[in-house]
Computed example of a mutant assay.
Amino acid sequence: MTRWVVGVAGAVVVAGAVAGCDVPPAPAAAPGPSVLRPPAATVAASPPSAAAPACPEGGVRLLEGPGDAAMGLRVADVRLVNCGTQPYVLEGYPEIRLLDGKRAPVEVTVVHGSDGITGAPSGVEGVPQKVELLPGQAASLGMVWRNLVTDSTVPAAEGRVLDVTPRPGAPRVELELRHSVDLGNTGKLGISPWKAETR
């Protein structure tokens, strides 16, 4: 009986040794907690600054000024700014054309002053004078017209673009108008000579 017990015990030891070959090794120590690195800060690109529009070929640009409308009489101002690098000399009246929204010419008679348009002072009166604009300086031009339809058989005219030759031989400059020159069918536009701005 004692021999059997010893034999059984030996068998158990041998079986344990054999089984030990199949027992997986003890698991390695679990890795420590990962160090979470904050994502690199992203620097938002600054929006590009709004670049000033390029100066036109002739060295001047046009800007639409304030206007006024009362009882069908329209008055508006246009500014000419010297955006070039050299002095710009004006004298007298510019040459003006009106274009419609498709840039087709509008039939209009351009007169100096307000004769035939209104007898009241309108700001387009004045004697032509020489105006010299240094870079950055501006001159102004007054316009006056009536929005009247006196003949229903004649289509009303409306200018959406001002095409200006500031002085003889100078390149033309265009200005898209926010407020149209609504001539009705009067067909007449009065303008002032160039005037130096005092402000």
Rank of each mutant, 00 (worst) to 15 (best):
M1I: 08
T2H: 06
R3Y: 12
V6I: 13
V6N: 11
V8M: 10
A9M: 13
G10L: 15
G10S: 14
A15L: 15
A15E: 07
G16V: 08
G16S: 11
A17D: 10
V18K: 02
V18I: 15
V18A: 15
D22T: 13
V23R: 10
V23T: 13
A26E: 12
P27L: 10
A28V: 09
P31S: 06
P33Y: 02
R37H: 13
P38T: 09
P38W: 03
P39F: 02
A40T: 08
T42R: 14
V43G: 09
V43Q: 11
A45V: 03
P47S: 07
P48A: 05
A54W: 05
C55M: 12
P56C: 04
P56W: 04
E57S: 14
E57R: 11
G58I: 01
G58R: 03
G59E: 09
V60F: 09
R61V: 14
L63E: 15
L63G: 06
E64Q: 12
P66I: 03
G67N: 03
G67L: 05
D68Y: 05
A70I: 12
R74H: 13
V75T: 14
A76M: 11
A76I: 00
V78K: 02
N82D: 07
C83Y: 02
T85P: 00
T85K: 12
Q86V: 14
V89Y: 03
Y93P: 00
Y93F: 04
Y93T: 00
P94R: 08
E95R: 08
L98A: 05
D100R: 02
G101N: 13
R103L: 07
R103C: 04
A104W: 08
P105G: 12
P105M: 05
V106A: 07
V111H: 00
V111S: 00
V111G: 00
H112M: 03
D115W: 02
G116M: 01
T118V: 11
G119D: 13
G119I: 01
A120N: 07
P121Y: 00
P121C: 01
V124C: 00
E125T: 02
E125M: 01
P128D: 05
P128Y: 00
Q129L: 11
Q129C: 03
V131K: 08
E132F: 05
E132K: 12
G136C: 05
Q137A: 15
A138W: 06
A139S: 06
G142P: 10
M143L: 15
M143W: 02
W145Y: 09
R146Y: 00
N147R: 09
L148T: 14
V149F: 01
D151N: 15
D151G: 06
D151F: 07
T153P: 01
T153V: 06
V154G: 00
R160A: 15
V161Q: 08
V161M: 06
D163F: 08
V164C: 05
T165R: 14
P168E: 09
P171D: 07
P171N: 10
P171G: 11
P171M: 05
R172W: 03
R172Q: 09
E174H: 08
E174D: 15
H179E: 12
H179M: 08
V181H: 07
V181M: 09
N185Y: 10
G187Q: 07
K188R: 13
K188L: 08
L189W: 02
G190F: 01
I191Q: 06
I191N: 01
P193S: 06
P193M: 02
W194F: 11
E197K: 08
T198M: 07
R199M: 10
